[in-house]
Simulated scan of single mutants.
Amino acid sequence: MELTDIWFLLIAVLWTGYLVLEGFDFGVGMLLPVVAKDDPVDRQVTLRTIGPVWDGNEVWLLVAGGATFAAFPFWYASLFSGFYLALLVILVALIVRGLALEYRNKLQHAAWHRRWDLAIVIGSAVPALLWGVALANIVRGVPLNANHDYTGNFFTLLNPYALLGGLTTLVLFALHGAIFLALKTHGAVRDQARALVLPLGAAAVPLAAAFLIWTQSYDGSWLTWVLALLAAVCLLGGILASRAGRDGLGFLGTAATIALAAATLFVTLYPNVLPSTTDPAFSLTTTNAASTPYTLKIMTWVAVIFTPIVLAYQGYTYWVFRRRLTRDDIPQVTVA
């Protein structure tokens, strides 16, 4: 296997990790007004489920972006210039969401909380939608000229296939978040979250099925069909396990669904990294978009040394904060 193939695989793994971990963060944020209603204590319980881990989950995005820049600079250049406005919207939403999570409890005032809660909902829903749109466009391809420059505009990205991808990630992340809340809480929040699993699942199943079937029209193979079918089985299994009260299995089911769906997209994409809809000859591939072999060799040694350390640290964080949360864990504070 060439180093270019190894780094394509590593970037796919990084994006998959980001989507699985940040996916339930987005889901929790989107569902905040539903699972906690207007109860300030329940809202605290909901937000504390992701409090220790949300910023660590975003590191996967930073590493994925950095790895793309270093390993495939031409992919990075075409992608970030062509998707500039969409990525800027995502970045602003993530910044607003981060500010909301950090500043919400600086004042114990109901109006202050409502504004930041709205920021959390919007800052979670927008990236959940637009990441699906972006990934779908990467697989489908975008108009590139002979210099690999993007020749479309923002609305070119809003094609039916990409919008279906965005709706799929939006609903799937919401389902992932609901099952995560059921796993991490006791009491009213857990009851509300479990009540949402069935309706969210009823929406996620046909959306995900339609999106993955449509994806097969873009260089689908027997392997992508297998991955898509496994994703469907995991999604149905996760929903059924959650409804049966097996929250851990339910969460593993939706996590596996997102991971397998991401794998389907990247396997469909390979060996391209950004197909051209103008002319296939203008497509960016793992070969013509890659850095020099020397650069990839240095990056490989760095990844071999530091990746296990980062994974061990993040795994330890999840282990430390594994306990379910209840209303008794929230200090009694009077909200004006």
Rank of each mutant, 00 (worst) to 15 (best):
L158Q: 13
G238W: 02
L236H: 14
R115S: 11
A12T: 12
Y270G: 00
N272F: 09
P33N: 01
E2C: 00
G166M: 07
I6W: 13
P73F: 00
N105G: 11
L172I: 00
Y18R: 00
V35S: 14
I213R: 10
P293V: 02
L227N: 02
A36S: 15
L198Q: 10
A182M: 13
N159K: 11
Q314G: 03
L170F: 06
P40C: 01
W7I: 04
F80T: 14
V335F: 11
T285F: 03
R140E: 15
R246A: 14
T257W: 06
A70P: 11
A93W: 02
T300K: 13
S78I: 00
L107A: 08
T215S: 14
V121S: 07
V189T: 03
I258P: 02
P271D: 09
P308W: 04
N147Q: 13
A195T: 10
F282V: 01
P206F: 11
A263C: 09
L223A: 15
V304K: 11
W75T: 09
L198W: 09
A303W: 10
G315A: 08
L235F: 10
A193S: 08
G245V: 11
L9C: 04
V302D: 11
V335L: 10
R322D: 12
I239H: 03
L223G: 06
I122L: 15
F155K: 03
T257I: 01
G82L: 10
A136P: 01
S81Q: 11
I309Y: 02
D25W: 08
S242F: 01
A289Y: 03
L10P: 07
S291M: 00
W131E: 11
A77C: 03
T334Y: 13
G245I: 08
W7T: 11
W214E: 14
W116T: 06
R194S: 12
L183G: 02
D219F: 07
N153D: 15
T285Y: 05
L235H: 08
H113N: 05
W75K: 05
V41L: 03
R246N: 11
L31D: 12
L88C: 07
I309L: 15
I239M: 06
P52F: 14
A203R: 02
G250E: 11
G56S: 02
S242I: 05
A209G: 12
F26C: 04
V205D: 03
W319N: 07
W15L: 13
S221C: 09
V139R: 15
G187V: 10
A110Y: 08
F306Y: 14
G220C: 00
L284W: 07
A162R: 07
G132H: 01
V139L: 15
P52N: 04
A202L: 13
T268N: 11
T268M: 05
L94E: 14
G152K: 13
Q216E: 12
A71K: 06
V59Y: 03
F8V: 01
L274K: 06
P143K: 12
I330S: 08
T277M: 05
L252G: 15
A202Y: 04
G51M: 01
T300F: 15
Q314E: 09
F26V: 05
V59E: 02
W131R: 05
R194F: 02
L175E: 13
D219E: 13
A289K: 08
G177A: 06
T16W: 05
L118G: 08
I298F: 09
L62K: 08
G17A: 03
W7D: 06
